[in-house]
Design a protein around this nucleic acid. Structure first.
Lengths: 233, 233
DNA sequence: CGACTGATTGACTGCCCTCAAATAGGGTGG
DNA sequence: CCACCCTATTTGAGGGCAGTCAATCAGTCG
């Protein structure tokens, strides 16, 4: 479950990690913040925070990848957005009045986190006002991206939503190949992310494949003409 | 367009107004905050803030009623939520880096606001940390309600969404009558709020009317059996 | 070589949107 | 009081997008 790390080991913050949560903090402030964090390893499919549980921890992704989900009343999992290195979650732990998490977070790849318990996080936020400013910025970013998702869900066709997911996935998790951009994604994941039926995804991908826009194999997609997709929405 | 008000007139804050924005502030802090606000009257259908414009003002609703909308890519207006007395909007003005508003706000009834420009609002937030804490609470509330709206849109039928809008409207804007709860709402408004077609609303209401759940007249609805509706979702 | 998971394809269904046309309420001016 | 207009609402017919279900095929791993 992780262990406390002393200030000495706080050099463990990768130089390459830019986090909006720690943006604008002085080196000594960052050191102080990391000194009270514990590290936690994460592995695929692990649930990092569960919707409805009390918001007890604030986390920062150092490496790996995770995703926000919201559980609908009929029990389906609704994909909301990715969480990449540098992103924070569990921001509800910074609220003055303790509340439940409103989303579920699933780890998708091996990686590690910094985790603060609520009390420490609140103490830090009081000492370092910039920290709360940053949390506010991140929260407002969530508002924007949720509003976008809502607009997309309300006004776009299944085809458009799938196209969008493909293009964004290519940007976020894709690797350049000679023939295009390749990324790992099963039809089922795609269906969750675009919020459409599994079969609809399959049919749509088949069509695009026959048009030469992409090539698919089991669990992988090679996007050959991203522009022809992004022009669809 | 409003005018600056001195500290002396800050007694104008209605005693009955409880605002999450000002929660936990001392009386003298509240006085200081209101001293730099200007008052603004609002009238129905006035656009109070426009999606995409630079977030330049923070506002607090004193009286009246307004609504958040998001404009979809195909030009429709997507209802997001009500704003009632005590609610704040334009929270983007408190962000460190200036950004555009991500939503449009329409006034729906006569009323008035307190408005702060970005510079004053930021200055106040720095002087009074509680203010930023409160803004953070409100922002997180927006996240929660948007996530709920998304889940509702994704998993509920048109009928369920209409039922939900009716019940919530009854709670928020309804007046008790001998035969039930009455509130003003046209089919078109209802359609926007539930994000369904105008005709679907009409048909559904007709059905419920024939079941005795409600009575409708032009622009008004009398909800007779709210429980039978809320049990539908 | 099974066993299992992922993907495909077709047939069918149904919810809800679109469009057209008619009806009704409510206010205004003569 | 009535004629008129504008807007809100109704009702029906038709269609399409995408979901459901069933059966089959394909890739991967032990």
């Amino acid at each position: 479950m992780g262990r406390p790390v002393g200030a000495a080991s706080s050099a463990a913050l990768p130089r390459s990690l830019r986090s909006r949560l720690l943006e604008g903090l002085t080196p000594s402030e960052i050191e102080a913040v990391l000194a009270v964090a514990r590290r936690q390893r994460i592995s695929p499919n692990e649930v990092l925070q569960h919707e409805g549980d009390t918001a007890s921890h604030l986390s920062l992704v150092v490496t790996g990848r995770a995703a926000f989900y919201k559980t609908t009343t009929d029990g389906r999992k609704l994909f909301l957005r990715w969480i990449a290195p540098g992103d924070a979650f569990g921001l509800g732990a910074l609220l003055q009045i303790q509340q439940p998490y409103f989303m579920t977070i699933h780890a998708k790849r091996e990686g590690c986190l910094f985790v603060w318990d609520r009390v420490s996080a609140q103490a830090l936020a009081s000492q370092i006002p910039q920290l709360r400013k940053n949390a506010y910025t991140i929260a407002s970013d969530y508002v924007a991206s949720l509003a976008d998702a809502l607009a997309a869900r309300a006004s776009q066709s299944a085809q458009q939503r799938i196209a969008r997911v493909l293009v964004e996935s290519a940007r976020h998790t894709g690797r350049a190949r000679s023939k295009g951009i390749e990324f790992a994604l099963t039809n089922e994941e795609l269906a969750q992310m675009a919020d459409v039926n599994l079969f609809t995804v399959s049919r749509q991908l088949s069509e695009w494949q026959s048009q030469g826009i992409l090539t698919k194999s089991r669990g992988k997609i090679l996007l050959r003409a991203a522009k022809r997709l992004s022009s669809q929405y």
